[in-house]
Structures are given as C-alpha cells and as structure tokens.
C-alpha cells in the first residue's frame, strides 16, 4: 500500500496554509510533527478528503482522495471531535458505521469490540454528554477504527488521555501500523518517537523533514529543537 501526496497546496485568501507538500507513505506508523500553525491540521484534512486542496493530488494505491473507494478504507480522527450529546457512545459508533456503509450486524459487532478495546466498557451505554474529555477521545479513536481502515489519519489523538491511556493507545497504533498506513499528527514527541518508522516535520506549511526513523532513537525532541528552536512543538 502506498499513499502518494504530490504538490499539495492550500491557500486561504492569499495565505499559504500548506505549500507544495510532496511525500509517499507506506504501511507503518508515520509521525507528523510541527509547531502550532505549521499546517498539520490543514494537511490532515486534505488527506482525509474533508478539505479540497487548492492544488496537488492525494492517492492511495492509485485511488484518488475524492473517491468513495478512498473513503471506504479511511479512518479519521479530527483534532476536535464533534458528537451528538444525546447519543450513547454505542449509538454514535453505530451511526458513523452506517455512514461508512457497514451493515447493522457488522457495525454492532465492531462497535462492541471497539468499546471494549478502547476501555469504554459500560460507559458505551451512557450518553456522550456525560463523558469526560478522555472518554470522548477514546470514543473518537473507536469511530476511526470502526471500518477496519487501511489508512488511519489521527490528529492529536492522545490529547486529554492520561499517561496509561496514552501508552495503551501507542501500542494499539503500533499494532495497526503492521498492516495499515497510520499517519499520526501530534505535538507530543514521546507519542511518536518510539512507534513511528517514518518522521515528517512541518514548518510554515511545508514538509521540512521527511526521513525513516529508527524506533530506538531517543533524540527526536533534541532534533526538533535544533531545527526549529524558536517554534513551540
């Protein structure tokens, strides 16, 4: 599997949010680091097909980002998860599963599995309005996985999770990366340092670092600060 991004640009009234980004990703966990305003979220939105690029192309094994076949294998967790407060966690997963084209029986099986996998357990039957920030994040992770995606795009997935949950989530992503392309955008260096096989860094809308990463290395923060010392990760 190969995700190919060529010459991707997004301009907002003259401002270049993403500027001529080109890269290729294969199976595994790929980390995306960058300061606030570097263009990470805009890039993730374009890779998820929710934002139309000003220029450039995105394809997964030749399938264009705008096609239904691309979205069929996509799992996406946006930075800010919208939810219907009156729905239970389980209902929310069932609802998104229906939009992802899953049959009711298939969706029910997956939703039950994922509620357990993300540690929501009994809370899955409670209304989302009663959830804590961490529980909502876990629900977001569950919905991204409901269609067993080949391409998983997660934007700041561990925000609001406690250290134990973060470690559990890292293991989960690592496992998923064995047979899927995982793109993980974060500002927490430790989230990607030990699990990413490839590291990308963005600054001012451009990818300024794109290299294979040795999971044993522990100098990511140092490397980042050396390159972008003045910016906040």
């Amino acid at each position: 599997m190969e995700l190919i991004v060529r010459g991707l640009c997004k301009y907002y009234s003259g401002k270049k949010a993403v500027d001529d980004v080109t890269f290729r990703l294969t199976e595994g966990v790929n980390g995306l680091l960058g300061a606030n305003g570097a263009g990470k979220t805009t890039l993730m939105r374009m890779l998820s097909g929710v934002l139309r690029p000003t220029a450039g192309t995105v394809s997964l094994d030749g399938v264009d980002v705008s096609s239904e076949d691309y979205r069929a294998v996509l799992g996406y967790l946006p930075q800010e998860l919208g939810y219907y407060p009156d729905f239970t966690g389980f209902d929310f997963l069932m609802y998104l599963a229906s939009l992802k084209g899953l049959s009711r029986s298939h969706a029910k099986r997956r939703a039950t599995e994922l509620i357990e996998l993300t540690g929501l357990g009994e809370a899955g039957r409670k209304r989302i309005r009663t959830y804590s920030g961490g529980m909502r994040r876990r629900l977001g992770i569950a919905q991204a996985l409901i269609n067993d995606p080949d391409l998983l795009i997660v934007d700041e997935p561990t925000a609001g999770l406690d250290p134990g949950e973060r470690a559990r989530f890292r293991d989960l992503l690592s496992e998923l990366g064995r047979h899927s392309i995982v793109l993980l955008s974060t500002h927490i260096v430790s989230d990607v340092e030990q699990i990413a096989g490839r590291m990308l860094m963005m600054s001012s809308g451009r990818v300024v670092f794109d290299e294979l990463w040795d999971k044993g290395r522990t100098d990511l923060e140092e490397l980042y600060l050396k390159r972008f010392g003045g910016e906040n990760v």
Partner: peptide, 18 residues
C-alpha cells in the same frame, strides 16, 4: 442542520457515504 450544530461535519465528510 444537526451536523453543523454539533460539529460532526468533518467526521461525516470523511465517511464512505457522500
């Protein structure tokens, strides 16, 4: 207009069903 009100547009746009 429920999706807009509760901010689920982004999630729904990334789903298979247009």
């Amino acid at each position: 207009g429920r999706s807009r009100r509760y901010g689920t547009v982004e999630l729904e746009l990334a789903c298979r069903t247009p």
